[in-house]
Amino acid sequence: MAIRRGRGVAAINYPTGMNLGGDPTQALVHSTPTGNFMVTLSSVDLGQGMKQIMAQICAETIGVPTDRVIVDTADTDTGPHCMGTFASRGTHRAGNAVIQAAREARQVMLEVAAEELEVNASDLETDGQGNILVKGAPQRSISIFDVALSAHFKRGRSISGRGMFLIPRSYPEKETGAMKPSTCYAHACTVAEVEVDDETGEVTVLTVRNVFEIGRALNPKMVEQQLVGGSWMAISHALYETTEPYYPDRDHGGTDFNQYLMPGPGDLAQTEIIVLERPSADGPFGAKGPGEMCANPQIPAVANAVFDAVGVRIDTLPITPERILRALKAQASN
């Protein structure tokens, strides 16, 4: 009887969004009378940072500072259509829709500015600070604040745009069954080190080293936050959490936090995160979806590390002491 150490590796490809019947998201962008921009979505910010990312995307496209953009989300009664915030699709689908809507709004904004400055709209550019300048003659400029006032009160224009991003449904080819469930994939790889007590079956995760390839990180700190939290959540799913410990039997399933194992801050493995950026061809500014994939490779990596440590394959989650001891017993009797 001993503490045995093992190391396991796992790698994943993870699709951004899904494609069960076409996967659309719409966005609307309009300016307020004072030249702030409103993005209206039905997508949800549930803490992953949707509002911040959509504000960045809209601001970058229109050419204004991010704090000039207000994002209104999550009222499906009144907002434009969104399939939802799931499947790591938010940044990719809604971001593309916001780009399209913001481009249309930018075009109207430049047309109004062109009338005010008596030049062609194609001769104008934005400085990213809230001003529109004549290319090559930046002394001729107008603030977006004044453009919005002009549009609203003088020229009767609505500085607004509509965006729609749709991944059309992909049907399997009849001959081969091949289909295209997603247009871009994120990737990740984890190496986990564990200690397994072969007397008690307890697993301690020592280190979790992750590398994630997530397209362009539109907000690097928020990407890191997502990956750090996701890596821990995966370890929790690998070893502790389940509502059905004897699935499919519901007996003994936890019904509250007295019975459902939810690790606290004392149960952390040393965790390393490395981000690789390989921009996607069809993502907004090259983004993919890091949302769900961040909690995937750690689980098979831990299972492989347990195998490396004590030589038993646990193929049911979570990898509990009971499952390890039963597997060790079966191994010994073979």
């Binding site: 936050q225 821990w232 959540m233 801050p265 952390l268 965790t271």
Partner: peptide
């Protein structure tokens, strides 16, 4: 001591380390 003080509070999203 920080970990001990936070041990009665559970968090789904962060993995605790940023809170610590």
């Amino acid at each position: 001591e920080v970990v001990e003080a936070l041990s009665g509070n559970i968090c789904r999203c962060t993995g605790y380390e940023p809170i610590i």
